[in-house]
Design a binder for these strands. Structure first.
Lengths: 230, 230
DNA sequence: GAATTCATTTCGGAATCTTTACGATATTGT
DNA sequence: ACAATATCGTAAAGATTCCGAAATGAATTC
């Protein structure tokens, strides 16, 4: 049923065997790496849908690995650790991990968390995201985190940039406010959908008169879209 | 405006009363069940759009109920519990609940979470069902929510676009005004069928002279059709 | 040419969007 | 760690757009 691939990076053979059996039974394809270097290598080859990553690793520790994975992909990561330090948790989440678990791990909890994380990240999986979006004289880069209009860099706050990036990278398609809250703000955002309007307005101020080949359009009764002419 | 139904399953009368008042004020239709068996029964009869489910219930506990509901429907479920155990949360999510809240519940948070969950679960029913209808130089897209004539995008209000989309995607077939009200406005629409005439007129203004291969025709004494020549 | 059906126009109310202002929150710089 | 700054999100008022009812005029049928 599921074709989902999970990469487990941990040097405790007993634990990894257990994990492999458990997750295998749940229909996942499981791969084991027992040190940091292998971990990174396998990550590239295996292209997992989720990484289960131990903090304490030979050759290259989990933090480092987490950072490297994040630099090149949005693949969800669950950090595991024998220590239960709050510090670990905070650091892990800061580095872009999606969840955090303390060993020893209850098998039931593990599979539940994996499911939950996959569910979350799949919701926000965006079609066609290649980091930089260009239209005519406009360029939006998430990596550089900037907006360029005719070669000139414009200061744009994070939320506005993310919103513009999302709309532009899915141009001509309408999104409801709720969809935008999901895609840009996150599935667990609690708040009013009018918020989108305000951000659109602030964006429009900055984009005003920049080009006649594209625009941020309102679709009455539906939502917004980034429209490209021609 | 909202016709959304919420089923609250909880045996604490004080809590359910509070919830009923709060959610009622927000425009939801609320039904209360005070034990597990009623809960399942009401779920079937009432067909709610969302279930607010307490874990600790007489007769049949929340976990069991959650599982049963999931077996037969995708209706979103928010689990509530007095304990704040991580275990509960994880188990809840594993059983297919959509969110989890710890009592005592802040009314503001409750309504925010309900909104968020509904938002998430409704995404599949949003515009984006990549339906496009094409005839010659005309293209109607619900995804882009636009009408294109010869490559040029034309602004069309929602109702008009939906009407055109419906007629065009069932081309050459006649529909009475009442049928159109049913299909486009909704089966529960109460109103004058002359309304259709007005919308047809407005559409014709926009479509005027666009092509001779198709047209929005009146069928005298019957209704309208989108006629395609050749 | 009378009766019926359709087209067109107008207009107020409703729904939706825009804009503004302000407090809360997060970020930055020192 | 603190203050200064920037961003974010909410609420409310203002502007806009759309919808649908009614009324009148035109077309079609018999």
């Amino acid at each position: 049923m599921t074709d989902t691939k999970i990469l487990v990076i941990d040097d405790d053979p007993e634990y990894t065997e257990q994990a492999k059996t458990l997750l295998g039974n749940e229909g996942y394809a499981v791969k084991i790496a027992s040190n940091g270097l292998d971990g990174m290598e396998f990550f590239r080859m295996f292209e997992p849908d989720l990484v289960l990553l131990e903090v304490l690793l030979p050759q290259k520790d989990g933090w480092q690995l987490c950072r490297e994975i994040r630099e090149q992909s949005q693949t969800p990561i669950i950090i595991t650790s024998t220590r239960g330090e709050v510090f670990d948790k905070v650091l892990g989440l800061e580095l872009g991990a999606d969840d955090y678990m303390v060993k020893p791990i209850d098998p039931k909890e593990l599979s539940a968390r994996i499911k939950a994380v996959l569910r979350r990240t799949r919701l926000s999986a965006q079609p066609g995201s290649s980091d930089v979006v260009k239209f005519d004289n406009m360029e939006v880069s998430l990596q550089k985190f900037e907006l360029r209009l005719g070669g000139k860099a414009i200061d744009v706050p994070p939320k506005e940039l993310e919103l513009l990036y999302f709309l532009a990278s899915n141009s001509n398609r309408v999104y409801t406010r709720d969809q935008l809250l999901d895609k840009v703000w996150g599935f667990d955002y609690l708040g009013d959908s009018r918020t989108v309007d305000v951000h659109v307005k602030r964006l429009r101020e900055k984009l005003q008169g920049a080009s006649d080949k594209w625009s941020l359009k309102t679709v009455w009764g539906v939502g917004y879209k980034f429209e490209v002419i021609g």
